[in-house]
């Protein structure tokens, strides 16, 4: 096949595939920087996708839908925060429970919403906005400069998050909480509050990533629409070394493989494209082996913080 002719399609699929992962991964960066490994992204995305879809359909305003989806995401993530921060429950187990509970709630809501009125099955989609001039650049123009507003916002978020962690007092405090909460506490930083704030931000962004799926990617909600993107976002954070720029690169990479699959599938009906789909996961493992555990992110990541322990 002619790779060059397929390239614009691949790149377009890449950016479309990258955005939801990017949003969720940025949320997870906040969470893990504050020492909370949240594997419940998958569930939070599902809630964001469904509520965004349903409210967008009901109100006819997709932005209201997006905001509602994000609020719902925060609500679900507060459950995670309460269990892990206040009750000091195991983070992975709690995240897993969210992954089982949240999609169930979404499916239940969907059944009620669409079951009562099948006209509700298809929603509207955000329009793409082509940036004049830039969108005509060969190969990358259509992929990067002809997108929905939400996608632009996601990409703009990357430098903002980077700036936040580098130049905001709160950004510094966030990092200290994930690295050494006891030292942070001695310097007057409220560790518990920091962790809750991280969960709120994580819920907002992750749910926005989920809402992107139903508001920009495809106009319908189906059970399992997230399709493991939450876990990929988790891998993206590791692969991107817990930084906003790294996460951007990693999610584009994962999106690229996604796009490659789409293109290849179109070219060869029966080609073993699944091996391409494996690549991101194998990549993550290899990257981990390469970097080793020494530089494996915030040091207090995943550990409960008992204030009583001094």
């Amino acid at each position: 096949m002619d790779f060059m002719t397929a390239l614009p399609t691949i790149l377009k699929a890449m950016t479309m595939g990258a955005v939801p992962i990017l949003l969720a991964a940025l949320g997870e960066v906040f969470s893990e920087r504050a020492g909370l490994v949240n594997i419940g992204l998958e569930g939070v995305m599902a809630i964001g996708a469904f509520v965004g879809f349903a409210v967008g359909k009901m109100t006819g305003n997709l932005w209201v839908g997006l905001l509602a989806g994000m609020a719902a995401g925060v609500l679900v993530n507060m459950l995670y925060a309460f269990c892990t921060v206040t009750l000091c429950a195991d983070q992975v187990v709690t995240g897993m429970a969210i992954n089982i509970l949240a999609p169930a709630i979404a499916l239940f809501g969907y059944n009620l919403f669409v079951g009562s009125n099948s006209a509700n099955a298809t929603g509207a989609q955000m329009p793409s906005i082509a940036i004049p001039g830039l969108s005509d650049i060969p190969f990358i123009g259509n992929a990067f400069f002809n997108q929905t507003l939400l996608a632009y916002l996601a990409f703009i978020l990357v430098p903002l998050v980077r700036y936040f962690f580098k130049h905001f007092r709160a950004g510094l405090s966030f990092r200290s909480v994930g690295e050494n909460p006891h030292a942070a506490e001695t310097l007057g930083i409220n560790v518990v509050r920091m962790k809750y704030v991280a969960c709120i931000v994580c819920g907002l962004l992750t749910a926005a990533g989920g809402a992107f799926l139903t508001l920009c990617y495809t106009p319908i909600y189906t059970d399992g629409i997230v399709m493991g993107r939450g876990f990929i976002a988790l891998a993206t954070v590791i692969f991107g070394r817990w930084t906003a720029l790294g996460v951007l690169g990693a999610s584009l990479l994962f999106g690229f493989f996604d796009g490659l699959n789409v293109a290849l599938q179109a070219q060869f009906q029966a080609a073993p494209v699944m091996f391409f789909k494996m690549i991101p996961y194998i990549f993550t493992i290899i990257a981990l082996i390469f970097f080793g555990s020494k530089h494996a992110g915030p040091k207090a990541n995943g550990q409960p913080y008992f204030r009583e322990q001094r």
């Binding site: 130049h167 007092r169 510094l172 200290s176 690295e179 050494n180 030292a183 310097l187």
Partner: peptide, 27 residues
């Protein structure tokens, strides 16, 4: 030591200090 290994010397020193009212770091 009560230090954060992943941060620079300056970041460790000014961490949690509240002399400036701005939310931005005055590095």
């Amino acid at each position: 030591f009560m230090l954060i290994d992943d941060m620079t010397g300056l970041e460790n020193i000014i961490l949690g200090d509240k002399r400036h009212s701005s939310p931005l770091l005055q590095e």
